[in-house]
Design a protein around this nucleic acid. Structure first.
Lengths: 112, 112
DNA sequence: GATAGTACTTTCCCTTTGGAAAGCACTATC
DNA sequence: GATAGTGCTTTCCAAAGGGAAAGTACTATC
């Protein structure tokens, strides 16, 4: 499965992947964008509890990782739309495995 | 793939999984234990840069998640041995997917 | 001319995290 | 009797993270 010899390289990739997904908010934002492009305040409303500051920061991180894209339309006041990218959607397999293992983990650890 | 209706439940499992794996150290410790049971100071030596305090904390977290087990032998000074569990090994699939996606992610985002 | 809305940014402050270093109880060794 | 080693814990401190709330530049609306 995982290359034993090349452990440090594998760790690098795994860290990259974890970084793209870690934290309380990134997945929730991504989920929110699954149902279509949304604007800043829309996402803020859908992702319950997130502050403007945090939302702005997370959106930047997601952009930097090319999981979402940001489009500005020249209206007034300007409209900004966030869309999940193909790369963002490709996280699905990872999330599925995490979900799967997380279920087994719950059973194993919490027993419920 | 992922249940859309049951998004918040799925999120719970995913968070469980992420929590078990997140941070700079847990995977390194787990990797170190792949090659056989080890003692506290051995792990400390293998996982370069980790402090005693952090190692103790991470080992507790891994234990709580049943990814490793801790055995104390009644020698003097007492010997404590850490072993990866079957559940710990079952993380393999998740790590494989993370590794895989992480590789694609590197290509996509860093382009190298 | 006051208010509201958009997409953020900034400031303040508090909590958490994490490293460095020392401590500790015990024993074996020199 | 001093030193070393074991498996941690404790203390100190600095940096980072994150929420609350207000600010900003602009425009449209009443």
């Amino acid at each position: 499965m995982l290359p034993e010899k090349d452990c440090s390289r594998a760790m690098l990739s795994i860290k990259d992947a974890l970084e793209a997904v870690e934290g309380r908010w990134k997945l929730l934002i991504l989920y929110s964008l699954c149902s279509g492009p949304k604007r800043f305040s829309e996402i803020g409303r859908e992702v319950a509890g997130i502050t403007d500051k945090t939302l702005a920061k997370e959106l930047k991180a997601l952009q930097a990782n090319k999981l979402i894209k940001r489009d500005v339309y020249d209206t007034s006041p300007p409209t900004v739309e966030y869309t999940i990218t193909k790369h963002g959607r490709s996280l699905n397999k990872v999330l599925y495995e995490l979900w799967n293992w997380g279920l087994a983990h719950r059973k194993e650890v919490i027993g419920k």
